[in-house]
Design a protein around this nucleic acid. Structure first.
Lengths: 263, 263
DNA sequence: GAGTGGTCTAGACCACTGT
DNA sequence: CAGTGGTCTAGACCACTCC
């Protein structure tokens, strides 16, 4: 077994056993090289292994620390029905709280919303999902929600709608109207659209360099890619969202109710 | 910007643009050091970045290759109802095909099953999920399914049942009876248990060194951790599975049907 | 300024694969 | 055997953070 693996194993065991507690500062790299009697690059390779496993994180000029488990965001299956039930409530009640607050347990005032709209032409992928011709004009909406306290972004959302459908209500074309009380389901409601079902496709992949920066990830932490497809009562795809969620903070919970056997 | 980042950016662009096609063999490291006029460790650092992004993979003694996108396993929401519907079919029909074949599109004969049973005492986590005392005797079942063609494992499954519940049917205590036609839902049926609902909790994390080996992953590829909780018609937790799935091959699809607004 | 992690080098040797 | 990637060293310099 390689030296760096032995060192990584040793340090991993110390972390998992609690000898090195979450949040604890580790010895400096130069000091560790003396302890383990190896060269600096070898020591750094060992630490790189633990970093990729999400066990430690290093901060330039400060030190290397044992990583604390992060607060999970639970995204549950009943979220969508909850949103639908709220669509026809009064404006005030809808504005009081949103789905993000529900997932995180945070308050409206803890969060900072950012939205940006633009128009694009449907690429092959979008054209296929929406079942519209390639090049169809689409409204693309970009959302970012950050917590004020930690200044940590919760997700990156890219939402797509067919432009000609949306323009029936010009208020929906203006990003200044975000955050919209009641969210997308209420926005669609103003167009006379009722949702029949929502399909979630969940995959995971390594983050792009851009996402590492935007979501404040450390090396080795994957992202969830959630594609959410909303289908209306006429079996038409009316909205598609790509939601990028940090893998270390997110948990999905889906409940499948089964039919009873006939008596 | 650091040298290794410039090199990684350059190679990444070549891969994404298709100049380096999927499956293509890259120049040897020593050759790349000459091209980019850097030292070997720096070159290796650049390649390490791309490896962590899942774009390339290296094989000792052979070379470094552009990674091909892998065939996805789709795990859909209607899988559980499909399993339940099959529980009361004849033995022959149940034996003909299983849920794994359904997810992957493979045939029974393409797959190699492995099961190992043992008895353990419930730790805090299991005791809480099952709502039984700490230390309760549990049947732990370990499953591995591999494709014969690729010899690539599809998942690692750890399934837990309360021992005293299972022992009513001694056949369920013997791993030699696996693969059991109709799977866990049919096994529970022989105990007189009918499932009411199944809750899936999905999270993602970096693989442990053991999982990297078992699932044939490369550095930087996360795993899905699916905790599947089966609840019977008496609101009792009857089975819990932890399923470890390779992040680069798996996609979850969940459909949420919404109630209609009152007319 | 002192201490930390981040980058980089030139060169050595080893381990694995295929011929 | 030749060619490949994997490991390791000793030492240098830089960039960042805190005091």
């Amino acid at each position: 077994m390689a030296k760096y693996e032995r060192i990584a194993d040793d340090l991993r065991q110390k972390i998992l056993s609690g000898e090195l507690a979450p949040g604890a500062r580790m010895s400096a790299e130069t000091s560790l090289t003396e302890q383990y009697k190896v060269s600096l690059p070898t020591m750094r390779q060992a630490l790189g292994v633990l970093r990729a496993e999400g066990l430690i994180e290093s901060h330039h000029g400060i030190g290397t620390f044992v990583r604390k488990p992060r607060q999970k965001i639970r995204r549950t299956t009943d979220r969508y029905q909850w949103e639908k039930d709220r669509v026809r409530l009064s404006d005030g009640k809808r504005a009081a709280t949103g789905a993000t607050e529900r997932d995180t347990g945070l308050k409206f005032n803890d969060l900072e919303f950012y939205a940006k709209y633009d128009a694009i032409e449907a690429d092959d992928d979008l054209a296929q999902v929406f079942n519209v011709p390639h090049g169809t004009k689409m409204l693309r909406r970009l959302y970012r929600t950050r917590t004020k306290s930690e200044n940590s972004p919760l997700s990156l959302i890219y939402s797509y709608l067919v432009y000609d459908v949306v323009k029936a209500n010009p208020e929906l074309l203006d990003e200044e109207n975000e955050p919209w009380p009641g969210g997308t389901q209420h926005q669609l409601y103003t167009l006379g659209i009722e949702l029949d079902r929502i399909v979630d496709e969940i995959s995971t992949r390594p983050p792009t360099p851009d996402e590492v920066e935007q979501l404040d990830l450390t090396q080795g932490i994957a992202v969830f890619n959630l594609r959410k497809i909303s289908i209306d009562t006429g079996d038409r795809v009316v909205e598609v969202s790509n939601v990028i969620l940090p893998g270390d903070r997110t948990e999905f919970v889906y409940m499948t109710k089964l039919k009873r056997w006939d008596a």
